[in-house]
């Protein structure tokens, strides 16, 4: 794959956000700056639509906004740590770790396989803990790109 799923500039280690909309937008802006999303508003609307269907908060302090969208250039992950926590609708409280997943609308199956592999890794607590404890953005990107391998 030409582009790695994540690069250090797609990691926000200390994200300040009062609600999930702001947190999501901050991560979207990182993707726009990295040239992976062409239209911040358009993609944000798609993510909001998905979030409105069923909140993506997961037990263990995870928020997982995501969408397939025509505004996405390449399959991408942005990671944000919100130390104060931000509500993503999970039953056990606010999320401290936010994964924004962007999938191109016309994604071929290689694209989708890497995202599937990412989703599978996200379930593992060890994976999440290692990201939560990573020292810097580069380490987060390294962990993701090393552990997420399409089967």
């Amino acid at each position: 794959m030409a582009l790695p799923l994540i690069t250090p500039e797609l990691v926000a280690l200390d994200l300040q956000a009062d609600d999930r909309d702001v947190a999501t937008r901050a991560l979207i802006d990182l993707m726009v700056a990295a040239g992976r999303v062409t239209d911040a508003d358009g993609f944000h609307a798609d993510v909001r639509a998905r979030e409105a269907q069923m909140a993506t908060g997961m037990p263990g302090g995870i928020g997982l906004p995501h969408a397939r969208s025509e505004h996405v250039v390449a399959p991408s992950l942005a990671v944000g740590r919100v130390l104060a926590g931000v509500d993503f609708g999970a039953p056990d409280g606010p999320a401290t770790l936010i994964f924004l997943i962007a999938a191109p609308a016309g994604g071929d199956s290689d694209h989708l396989k890497i995202l599937a592999a990412l989703a599978r890794r996200l379930v593992h607590e060890s994976f999440r803990t290692s990201i939560l404890q990573a020292e810097d953005a580069g380490a987060v990107a390294d962990i993701v790109n090393r552990e997420v391998v399409p089967s």
Binding site: L64, A103, L115, A119, V123
Partner: peptide, 16 residues
């Protein structure tokens, strides 16, 4: 619904 995240998370979680 989206077919990119929860489908696979559920699969992995069930297997584990």
């Amino acid at each position: 619904p989206t077919g990119i995240a929860h489908t696979y998370m559920a699969a992995e979680a069930l297997e584990q």
